[in-house]
Design a protein around this nucleic acid. Structure first.
Length: 846
RNA sequence: GCCCUCGUGGUGAAAUUGGUAGACACAAAGGACUUAAAAUCCUUGCCGCUUGCGGAGUGCCAGUUCGAGUCUGGCCGAGGGCACCA
């Protein structure tokens, strides 16, 4: 019997698909479309298991939908701008472009080994001018729409490398490369006005029915809508300043007001910029680390001014004004009123500076003379000690009433606030999309004319200079626009911009003169199923939602707002971590074990290896498995089968060597089943109803499980199929329907293991092009063997197997006759009987 | 601190609207076949007693229900997100 040679088979079919352009997609308005998209990879060098899992899921879905008769779009591209290229190029003295293009070639080859059903004719790469020229066009379009602006803002500045660092490049307050203490520096930066859509981005989450709730909640919190009131506080003690505006969500606690706190960046700080004590204080504030921990533990410090703020509801109450380190400038107005009794931060601050702590809310179960203890009380209750607000229920009534009164007295206004900040898109980097802007001699912004697009990245740059390499490109920087001397913007775009519209480009990947053709996106968009890692739950997905709205704004031709109709976030691939005696990480392939308990180095079995917990595969911990090596040993179908089995796709999965080899052996077993069937094709004679039932029911289950992404259950069904068919064939139950049903089985497993399925079908002389999902014969879906559970007082005592439906009366008669059941029922009074038709009967007795 | 999710055998898990808990696999043990090995197939969740049967059982404690892994409340534990957002 011929062994299954996955290598030959997989190569053969991959060649066939390529030569025949099997997965080429084109618009067909008579056919329902399905746009399946996985998050495109960054070409870092090689694919990793995370990619394998992501693309296996997407591929199964794409192939399934194709079988179901949809016109499927399943493209792939490269998120190819970004810092790793710049760093790698610097290290190896290469050009980022060369490095990136080489990686793309390698990874493309690896993806093809997986047998993905991708339309490679639509391949795009964001670092290619063919792509970014359109992005520059979109940038200018958004500029014209007023959604792009420039303002001064703070950045993390590395004083040694003279460059801006992203937040994740700042480690313990120091630059990741130079180790220099990072400074806050004000720079002119470009922004997208994502806040223009805050309300919409929040509300429209409600319509995204096919998104995970988790992601929607994360976005909701990120947008952070809060409802409150802006209040002007009159100020005494300075000629220059008469009032300070604050934002609060708790205007009802205004009678507990005991200080007013300002951010050190508040405009009022100008009054103190020559005050040495204030300069020292500001310095002290900036030292508070940037790490989450240090912020959480930071003590609250303040700088007392000579100013007094007046309580708008009680003009006799005058309280000190402080600058305080815990007030943020970019939320609200950079000024807050302090109510220590009912806000923990204010409480901590008041304790430190011995300010009054006046209780104005009491919990419902406390007496009128309630006083807050060692911490602020922020829960619900009733207003006290607050004159005309007393007795109001906290929070809803009290807040609404307080706002009403403030508005009536012209002291404040109802206000909604969002946490979502505008998106800073300037990066002082070389390997990114140039911003198509220049400045004239008076520093005015000048758009690069459309005819001069794309603004090409210069090929030859010195990456070893400090700061942005583009700054030193003298020739490139200077240009004339309409006869005026100008200099180019040297910042490039955040790479998140590249990935905010690539799903549109796939619809018109070859369009020369525009980013996309309206007719194409009308047909293909929105993406029906988007699949990727949960790490992009907020930024990438929110930015894409913003882009879709920004592009559609004032655009009469497309009104699309949501780019992704369905979203699926898959879990990570994990593996145990290994360390040698010197505590260095060791690759799993360099480790061996005979008993599964003690581990040693392959090269030196006397050296013990300690096993750490299983964690998400990462290069730094060396707990990675190279997909290419695994595919070469076990084949793509075995890898696909394994990576989809066992764990539900949204959860993390454990890589296991025994698991992958079991999948491999399973394919071998399935193959020999196929061989047996092939040899005995002529022997089918008897009709077998059980087979018909099994097959139709399992295909139905397949559909249901595929539709709800239960791939692990689908794989379980495949195992069941094998066991069932193998049993039948060993018993020589050659039903006339055996062959037909088996062929249908080969079709439904096709999305999961396409090479294997195609090869088996071919061997049985079946067509492999345009395979259709088999129609289910409804006659066999009806369960005709009824298992009726007999319960006594809700406890299972026996199961009756019936070949046909039975009525309650007969059933009870049978039960009473049953010798096993007799002992439970005889001489007992049946108080109640619960009967679920053909399923269950429950006797309640005493 | 706030928000969200999840707790089921040795392990990954299944159970779609409350109705036979543990499908399907991994590991381990035992068995069949074999001169032997590989491969393949079968059996085994736990505790009792003699095949068979009985008991407990889905993190813990209550509740609703004829019936709860599933619903409600409280507690404990794990993971994730946000983090001085006023």
């Amino acid at each position: 019997m011929e062994r299954y040679n996955f290598k030959l088979v997989e190569e053969k079919w991959q060649r066939y698909w390529l030569d025949n352009k099997t997965f080429k997609s084109s618009k067909n308005k008579n056919k329902e479309k399905f746009y399946c998209l996985e998050m495109f990879p960054y070409p870092s060098g090689k694919i990793h298991m995370g990619h394998v899992r992501n693309y296996a899921i997407g591929d199964v879905l794409s192939r399934y939908k194709t079988l179901k008769g949809y016109n499927v779009l399943h493209p792939m591209g490269w998120d190819s701008f970004g810092m790793p290229a710049e760093n790698a190029a610097r290290q190896n003295n290469l050009n980022p472009k060369t490095w990136t293009e080489k990686n793309i070639e390698i990874m493309k080859t690896q993806l093809k080994l997986l047998g993905l059903s991708i339309d490679w004719d639509r391949e795009i790469s964001t670092c290619s001018p063919e792509y970014y020229k359109h992005q520059q066009k979109i940038f200018l379009d958004l500029y014209d729409k007023g959604l792009v602006y420039r303002k001064e803002s703070y950045v993390n500045w590395d004083p040694i490398d003279k460059t801006v660092l992203a937040n994740e490049q700042v480690i313990d307050g120091k630059g990741w490369r130079s180790g220099a203490v990072v400074e806050r520096k004000k720079l002119n930066q470009w922004f997208f006005k994502i806040s223009y859509f805050s309300e919409e981005l929040l509300n429209d989450l409600n319509d995204l029915d096919n998104w995970p709730d988790k992601v929607k909640t994360m976005q909701k919190n990120w947008i952070g809508k809060s409802f409150g009131c802006e209040i002007d506080f009159k100020v005494e003690g300075s000629e220059k300043i008469k009032s300070i505006r604050c934002y609060t969500t708790r205007p009802d606690t205004l009678f507990g007001f005991s200080f007013l706190a300002l951010s050190v960046d508040h405009p009022l700080s100008k009054l103190y910029e020559k005050d040495k004590d204030f300069i020292d204080f500001k310095e002290e504030c900036s030292k508070t680390g940037t790490t989450e921990e240090s912020i959480a533990q930071a003590t609250k410090i303040g700088f007392k001014t000579e100013l007094k703020a007046i309580n708008p509801l009680d003009n006799n109450s005058k309280v000190p004004v402080y600058f305080a380190n815990f007030v943020l400038m970019d939320y609200g107005f950079g000024a807050v009123f302090g109510c220590p009794a009912h806000d923990q931060r204010d409480f901590d601050f008041a304790k430190k500076y011995k300010l009054e702590i006046k209780t104005v809310v009491k919990p419902l179960d406390e007496k009128e003379d309630y006083q807050v203890g060692n911490e602020a009380y922020t829960g619900p209750g009733v207003i006290i000690n607050s004159k005309f607000l007393n007795g109001l229920a906290v929070p809803d009534k009290s807040i609404n009433e307080a706002i009403k009164i403030l508005e009536e007295k012209n002291l404040g206004n109802k206000k909604t606030n969002f946490r979502l900040k505008d998106w800073g898109i300037s990066r002082q980097r070389y390997w990114g999309c140039p911003i198509p802007i220049a400045y004239d001699e008076n520093h005015n912004v000048v758009k690069i004319p459309e005819k001069d697009l794309p603004v090409m990245l210069p090929d030859k740059v010195d990456l070893n200079t400090n700061g942005n390499p583009l700054d030193s490109q003298k020739e490139w920087r200077h240009l004339n626009i309409n006869g005026k001397k100008c200099t180019r913007e040297t910042d490039t775009l955040d790479t998140f911009v590249d990935s905010s519209w690539y799903f549109l480009r796939f619809c018109s990947a070859k369009a020369q003169n525009e980013p996309f053709v309206i007719d194409d996106i009308d047909y293909w968009m929105p993406v029906d199923q988007y699949i990727g890692g949960v790490e992009h739950a907020i930024l990438h997905l929110l930015y894409s939602r913003f882009f879709m709205r920004a592009i559609s704004l004032d655009n009469k031709k497309t009104g699309l707002k949501e780019p992704f109709k369905g979203l699926f976030t898959q879990g990570m691939v994990c593996h145990e971590t290994y360390r040698d005696e010197n505590n260095n990480w060791v690759f799993p392939e360099d480790v061996t074990s005979e008993d599964g308990e003690n581990f040693y180095l392959n090269e030196n079995p006397s050296k013990k290896v300690t096993v750490g917990p299983s964690e998400s595969m990462s290069k730094s911990k060396k707990n990675t498995i190279d997909p290419e090596k695994i595919i070469k040993i076990y084949g793509a179908d075995a890898v696909r089968l394994f990576i989809l089995s066992d764990s539900p796709p949204e959860k993390d999965i454990q890589w296991s060597d025994t698991g992958i080899s079991a999948s491999f052996r399973f394919l071998q077993k399935f193959w020999s089943l196929n061989e047996k069937i092939l040899k005995n094709q002529k022997k089918f004679s008897l009709f077998d109803e059980d087979l018909e039932k099994f097959t139709n029911q399992i295909i139905q289950k397949f559909e249901k499980d595929l539709d709800r992404f239960s791939f692990n259950v689908v794989i379980a069904s495949i195992h069941k199929i094998y066991t069932f068919y193998n049993k039948h064939i060993n018993k020589k139950d050659w039903g006339t329907n055996f062959y037909k049903n088996y062929v249908n089985i080969l079709k439904v497993i096709n999305p999961v293991m396409p090479h294997f399925s195609n090869e088996c079908l071919k061997k049985l002389d079946q067509k492999t092009d345009e395979i259709k999902w088999p129609a289910i014969d409804k006659r066999y879906l009806k369960e005709e063997n009824f298992n009726i559970v007999i319960q006594i007082n809700g406890k299972k005592r026996k199961v009756f197997s019936m070949s046909e439906a039975i009525d309650e009366e007969t059933l009870i008669k049978n039960i009473k006759k049953d010798p096993q059941m007799k002992k439970y029922i005889d001489n007992k009074q049946i108080i109640k009987t619960i009967y679920v038709e053909n399923k269950l009967i429950n006797f309640i007795i005493n």
